[in-house]
Design a protein around this nucleic acid. Structure first.
Lengths: 149, 149
DNA sequence: ACATAGTCTAAGACTCAGTCTCAATACAAG
DNA sequence: CTTGTATTGAGACTGAGTCTTAGACTATGT
């Protein structure tokens, strides 16, 4: 969890990015971003509705869409589940996901830099052979979390 | 694309797996499996409706659900797109996906075995630190396909 | 061949995640 | 304060995916 100073920097970055596309950093949007920061893992619309009961569903969708348009939020498709959302990689460490196929839990994990480099080089190989221009990647591991195992 | 012999073996494997859970390998199910085999990449319900116009949507869903329950089909969540389906890994080579963020195209790619081993070892590291029991994994690369670049 | 018990299917009603519209409100800048 | 623009809540709407049901099919026993 980021400390106060980091969180402040992050909020001003978010504000700046929104301003660039003529959008304001309002309380509703800030509530969503705060929730994503404190959650520390991808959240579904259901999670948001639970934690921000006064925020209408459609507003939550709109905020997420706007933040997504500003490149501040990304979508994570869990296995058979609903769409979840997390902060974009610019705002957090690059990480991957462990998805529990039993309880649906999503765990964020960060690779040691050596391992991450291995993955990146594997991806360049992949992309080259297909004439594909990679922007980002995701490595999801499906299995059972410690509680469900 | 698998040759005739491989396809036959695969169909009898599918039949056997269905039999184990008291289900038959009927024409509707076979049509879905054939389509997945010949497609060679994940297909959406829309694709299925287009190629099998006489098969009702709800039947397609049911077949896919049944095949999924038998462990013969897996779901692939494309980026912001609809759910797609492909044959389970037992029936095909283990592979990964290049997802075009512009046109939504999904390209299957197979890693050279050395690279695949690297990925696997990275995953064991990840899983160990979280007490996670990995079953399978997916490596998706997001970017632009050669046509959209 | 016939019966029967169980599986499979088409048709369509239904649910609910996600989108869209619009009138009312808040904000920024002069 | 006023005006133009962005934002919001409320709720209608869309469509992917699910569920139900009555009838068709298939395997097996007699």
């Amino acid at each position: 969890m980021p400390d106060q100073g980091m969180a402040e920097d992050m909020h001003s970055l978010v504000e700046h990015r929104l301003r660039r596309i003529d959008q304001r950093y309002t309380s509703g949007r800030r509530a969503i971003v705060d929730l994503l920061v404190t959650a520390g893992h991808p959240v579904s619309i259901g999670d948001i509705a639970e934690r921000l009961p006064d925020l209408p569903r459609s507003s939550a969708y709109r905020h997420l869409t706007d933040l997504h348009a500003a490149g501040l939020v990304r979508r994570v498709a869990a296995n058979d589940e609903f769409t979840r959302f997390e902060l974009a990689e610019d705002l957090t460490e690059h990480h991957h996901h462990l998805l529990c196929v039993n309880c649906g839990k999503v765990i964020d994990v960060t690779l040691p830099s050596g391992a991450e480099q291995q993955v990146t080089s594997v991806i360049s190989q992949l992309a080259d052979t297909a004439g594909f221009q990679p922007h980002s990647h995701r490595l999801d591991v499906l299995g059972l979390c410690s509680a469900c195992a």
